[in-house]
Design a protein around this nucleic acid. Sequence first.
DNA 1: AAACAATCATTCGATATGCAAATGATTTCG
DNA 2: CGAAATCATTTGCATATCGAATGATTGTTT
Lengths: 158, 158
Amino acid sequence: MTKDKAEQALVALRRILRATEINARALARRAGLTPSQLIILQVISRAENVTLGAIAREVSLTQATVTALVDRLERAGFARRRRDHEDRRRVLVKLTEAGRAALAAASDSLQERFETRFAALADWEQSMLIAALERVALLLNAEDLDAAPVLDYGAIDK
Amino acid sequence: MTKDKAEQALVALRRILRATEINARALARRAGLTPSQLIILQVISRAENVTLGAIAREVSLTQATVTALVDRLERAGFARRRRDHEDRRRVLVKLTEAGRAALAAASDSLQERFETRFAALADWEQSMLIAALERVALLLNAEDLDAAPVLDYGAIDK
DNA sequence: AAACAATCATTCGATATGCAAATGATTTCG
DNA sequence: CGAAATCATTTGCATATCGAATGATTGTTT
């Protein structure tokens, strides 16, 4: 009797998760940030001028938590707050130059390695991998877990 | 010009990471545990009688951190410590009945859903997905990031 | 065997994470 | 207008995580 195939798939999946998880920690460390802070920073950099609540929803954290995280990012000089003029309840967050630099310093070598190696594959193989990954995401029902549009979780975390 | 294929792959990958990450939190919550505690509990359950240092290495945390986590698991009645007789510096950790029950209560619905859906696929498709996942793990160079043998990160976190 | 080095766990101090509930400010809607 | 909803912050609390120091034990060297 062969090893259960679903189990094989799960093992490979866990290996992927583990690699990215460990990478995320190392990554943040290199940038002088914590994993959570790095994630927030990535969200901010992707969508300049986001509201705090939007960030919270995107990363599935509480507004209170995001407030605290942005506090530290701001104190570290990586981000800046400013009130929204349209709706003065909102607070928009923006990346500073230092923040951009920190992100650059944290350039994701794991991701780059992946991209490089991926690019070296034959075209049909690239397509196959994409199809397979999307299939797996579907099997995990990723779509009804996150209504969030762009998500982009950086590399995990945590 | 078509969207970069590597980017497509990464997007799917992030969706997978995100699904599992959110799931891990919900999972732990259901069992009355924190994500970290759940991970430790899973490690313990898989290899009965592990040393604290071994746990730390397996999950890439500090011994100090693992000590604190096991403290809480023990206080909650989910695990028990006992000294190793061979080498009295070591401390072995064992799951209690309550711990086993907690793990059962936290049975991973995401994983189950995956297994169910995976099982419904045609045989060739299963094989293809496995191959693809293993390929991706390789592209991420998972093997030189973790020397750890069994790894099995449960459902990530964190 | 005595001395020294290595290993293993714990403790301590410090910072960060994360939540729920309460509060304050502003907008929206009946 | 006044009530309800929305958005951010604050507060209080438990946890997570690390590095460095400490204590206990084992292994090694002379």
